[in-house]
Design a binder for these strands. Structure first.
Lengths: 164, 164
DNA sequence: CAAAAATCGTTTGGACACTAACAATCTTTA
DNA sequence: TAAAGATTGTTAGTGTCCAAACGATTTTTG
């Protein structure tokens, strides 16, 4: 929502449409700014860091999770990354075709598939993640150090509240 | 990213992978919590408010923008809603088929299309938006009143910084 | 005033991600 | 220990969204 109207304009207009009804504008601002910021940040990271390496957002998340926790079971990747098993299957096949990751059957449990990065995948992440984090730092730099902590904590609270 | 690992565990593990490199964990926490919160909030609103009315997220945003600003040009809807013109075309056709919105050709400029809600569309939004805002309030209620303002402002800063 | 450029909404083709159904494998139950 | 149930990753089918190309219209330019 990269709107052209200011929040104040929107508020006035909303009030006109909802004459008499009570609206929590503070909560509305939290939600609306949350979505705008998330979209803007994701677009920025995709454009500056991921696109040059021809990686989709989800592909990067998979690489990241595997890089940190390898060898890791596919179901754990999906949970950690926040997407479905079905989505993971496709992304993983792509990464395997690009020789950045490999599947291995578990010896203990024939249903499970373990995933590791290839040496090339590890090299990529060792370059890519510092770049990624550099942009994260650039983004967060508009906030003071303590504001960064406060914001992260507030967002964490919201997530925890909704996910139990 | 609804991970099963704590942030501290991830930090330790990341440090192992990046021995010697400097990582801004504070910025990383801001970004990561931002995405988790946005996803969680959107999922919650879709499930509790939108799904019962068989509306997609984008369809709701379109209804909302048109409701506030009607009559409004399609290009403005797309910009205000933060999605492409192509996406809007499809969603708008769906909404028109459901008789919630209508397209009208501009008299001043033959290229432009103006959009309005039907009476049924307005009735729907008058019910739907208070429901939606009620859930927004529920979500924001984990934060104090001043924390809501602080968070909204921090998120707004981030967006503005990235979008210029 | 005509031709070139710009801008509009739509169409097309493709990427991505989800749910539901499935076969393979392991665990529980009786 | 054999049958029923649960769990795994994959496949099939669907919906959503976007960038690029396109016809239609308006604006600008020479």
């Amino acid at each position: 929502m990269a709107g052209t109207h200011t929040l104040a304009e929107t508020e006035r207009q909303v009030n006109e449409r909802l004459a008499g009804m009570t609206i929590d504008f503070k909560a509305m601002a939290v939600a609306s700014n949350l979505f705008r910021a998330a979209t803007a940040v994701r677009n920025h990271l995709e454009r500056t860091v991921l696109a040059p390496h021809d990686l989709s957002w989800t592909a990067f998340v998979v690489l990241w999770v595997v890089w940190i926790w390898e060898p890791i079971e596919t179901r754990q990747i999906a949970e950690e990354g926040g997407f479905s098993k079905a989505t993971l299957t496709g992304v993983l096949s792509t990464l395997e075709a690009r020789k950045l990751a490999i599947r291995k059957k578990s010896k203990d449990d024939g249903r499970l598939v373990l995933v590791e990065l290839t040496p090339a995948g590890r090299r990529l992440m060792k370059d890519l993640f510092p770049e990624f984090n550099k942009q994260e730092a650039h983004i967060a730099s508009v906030l003071s150090n303590s504001a960064q902590e406060t914001s992260a904590e507030a967002l964490r609270k919201i997530t925890k509240h909704l996910e139990g």
